[in-house]
């Protein structure tokens, strides 16, 4: 983790659609530019991705541990 960066963790396991999507979209509202939202998922939230990008966020999803990381992309 980079200095000054905070990981905010969210456990979205055991929830029915669309609650995981709602909780992520609620959680990123207060995300500082240097923060990352790390979410434990039951399955890949494919339909969330376009909405994250529409709101200016980038994401990475790891299949093996079903973890989604959401963050504000830095300046190019």
């Amino acid at each position: 983790m980079l200095t000054g960066m905070t990981d905010i963790q969210l456990d979205n396991r055991g929830l029915q659609p669309p609650e995981p999507m709602v909780r992520i979209l609620e959680a990123i509202r207060g995300l500082a530019p240097a923060d990352r939202l790390v979410v434990l998922m039951d399955r890949e939230p494919i339909l969330l991705y376009p909405e994250l990008e529409r709101r200016g966020f980038a994401w990475a999803y790891v299949d093996d541990d079903r973890t989604l990381t959401v963050f504000k992309p830095g300046p190019a």
Binding site: E53, W59, A60, Y61
Partner: peptide
């Protein structure tokens, strides 16, 4: 496998 944005999925 790791997937990164941008998204490719869409709902009709």
């Amino acid at each position: 496998m790791i997937r990164l944005s941008p998204a490719t999925a869409s709902s009709p």
